[in-house]
Design a protein around this nucleic acid. Structure first.
Lengths: 340, 340
DNA sequence: CTGAAAGCGCTTACAG
DNA sequence: CTGAAAGCGCTTACAG
């Protein structure tokens, strides 16, 4: 029922190897033969079997995309569809397919990646997160498999290709912006410290405080885990400190929305009573009330460049690791105000 | 460098076929042999080659997910990450992988699907849209390949498995709700008439008007294409009609946000001057100003059930086509008001 | 309970 | 310019 290369060969009166060469458009086959074979392929509706071709060619023309904590949770965060847009564009342009991980915890993801790599299911991998002491990244690095990280690797930074924003710098700038508006009580909200992105942003935040001679206050750090558990309580506690913050640096717009909504319930107005600045510049940030001041980290570009870089690496396995920094844009809207 | 079944066989002093049987956990192999072979597999870090296995087993354990108009655009609409969440969950539970389409126009998608099917790259397909006269769906149907549609097929409805909401009914209800609030000038905004979902919703809308003896007014139909081109102008035109609408049924929350934002610029207040009701109940609908009255169409469920259904179909190719209707929830918030 | 052999559908030296 | 043969890494009748 399925037509194979042999069927085409028989019908066109050539050997299977000739058909194969026509598919590959080998210059060693005469135009006449090519034409005839192509006509037969068309006539029979022939399409090369992907598995057979991959098996012998040792290439799948497929990129594996690995998300943290399963697609299930990941897709709740608009970051991931947006990087995927970038990845998809580059993959499509370069005629690669996309294979998506679905593992739902660290171990599952690790096992998935191992079998993708060892089982040669994909030619390369885009890792969409960077976690501290991540065995998946370590495995990829140790097995010398082509991969690119979106985010800064925690270890072996100079030996791994990655695409990232300069999170330390931009968070420093953003915190400085708040300081220049007169704020001295600035909290840092959200982000799990297991991820390098949080560590970097926290460091940028600290650097700005340091430069302004503002002491770092442990109470001003609200952890992701706590927010997830009870966001309302987290912000209530923060606001009931002896000297509550007058400004917030939040890890992403999603958390910012949540905070704004809880603050409203507490009759704390943004930006009149408290300023908020965040990251990612999601589509809705423009339409929210108040419109969010946010850093556009160019998520689409992160995905696009990561994939371009990966494809380059797959073509030249011996090329040196590459670090690509995607510039960001500070989008000033209405969620920050001079301190009264 | 890559360890194959032969390496394991040699090291374990058995035949490759025995190793293969151990992988498949065949009951015909002694526990003792299994143990030994498994130890060797562990020791050598053996993982079966995916392509080789698929080639002979004629199964890839992979589901193809086909989006309309490329992942590039699709991921701008929160609908798609959310269905993907559902798909991913079911796929993962059933140990299937996900292969994502990336084609950027109708023809590319069609060719992609043909080569997925003929090239046996996937075992089944979830089609994430239903368009009128769609050659991709026709091809899938004609080739008798396992597939499930999210949405109602335009043709061959009783011969194709699909998962959908009852769009006619719910849109009728929603329109009735507006009518009961006293509105008689109700516009229908957005949605391309090439998609069956729009046709169904439009019909539901018309049914409600009919029942209330309100004539259908062509001027009250604002097409998707026009909104995309110039949303501001579209709503301006609508509001400058002799009798402008006092209520809007919009195709999805995204369009509703856009409309609200333009209306605001025109000093038209929602819901005081105009009521808006929409579909999808995106995460942000709750936090928008005003909070949107919307129909929760349970996008996640659509993806989950579609995939479950597909997997069932792949296991029993001769099972009858199935139609699954996902119930919806009407979420009343603050974007609708009694007509003054 | 295990092995030798054939074969899945391709590609690619090798030969002519 | 084209073909016959070997082989990619598996699985699965068939035989014992």
């Amino acid at each position: 029922m399925i037509v194979t290369i042999k069927d085409v060969a028989k019908r066109a009166n050539v050997a299977p190897s000739t058909v194969s060469r026509v598919i590959a458009n080998s210059p060693r086959i005469s135009e006449q033969t090519k034409k005839r074979v192509r006509e037969v392929m068309e006539e029979l509706g022939y399409h090369p079997n992907f598995q057979a071709r991959s098996l012998v060619a040792k290439s799948t023309q497929t990129i594996g995309v690995v998300m943290p904590n399963s697609a299930y949770y990941a897709f709740q965060n608009p970051f991931f569809p947006e990087v995927l847009r970038g990845i998809s564009t580059s993959a499509h342009e370069n005629k690669y397919g996309i294979y998506l991980s679905t593992g739902s915890d660290e171990n599952e993801i690790f096992n998935e990646v191992v079998s993708m790599v060892q089982g040669r299911r994909v030619d390369g991998i885009v890792l969409l997160y960077s976690r501290i002491n991540d065995k998946t990244m370590k495995f990829l690095h140790d097995s010398n498999f082509p991969f690119v990280v979106v985010g800064r690797p925690f270890e072996n930074e100079e030996r791994i290709s990655f695409v990232d924003n300069d999170n330390i710098y931009i968070t420093k700038q953003v915190t400085k912006y708040l300081i220049e508006l007169g704020h001295r009580h600035i909290a840092f909200v959200g982000g799990s410290l297991h991820f390098v992105v949080t560590i970097d942003r926290l460091n940028g935040y600290k650097l700005a405080l340091e430069e302004a001679d503002i002491p770092f206050n442990e109470e001003y750090m609200v952890h992701e885990e706590y927010i997830k558990e009870n966001g309302r309580e987290a912000i209530r506690l923060l606001m009931s400190l002896d000297s509550p913050p007058t400004a917030l640096v939040t890890q992403d717009d999603l958390i910012a929305y949540e905070m704004i909504s809880h603050l409203e319930d507490m009759n704390v107005s943004v930006p009149n009573d408290i300023s908020i600045i965040s990251f990612n510049n999601l589509m809705l940030s423009e339409h929210s009330k108040p419109p969010l001041t946010s850093v556009d980290i160019c998520i689409y570009q992160l995905g696009l460049e990561a994939t371009n870089c990966l494809i380059e690496k797959m073509n030249k396995p011996d090329s040196l690791p590459k670090r690509i920094t995607i510039p960001t844009k500070f989008i000033e809207r209405k969620s920050c105000k001079k301190k009264k």
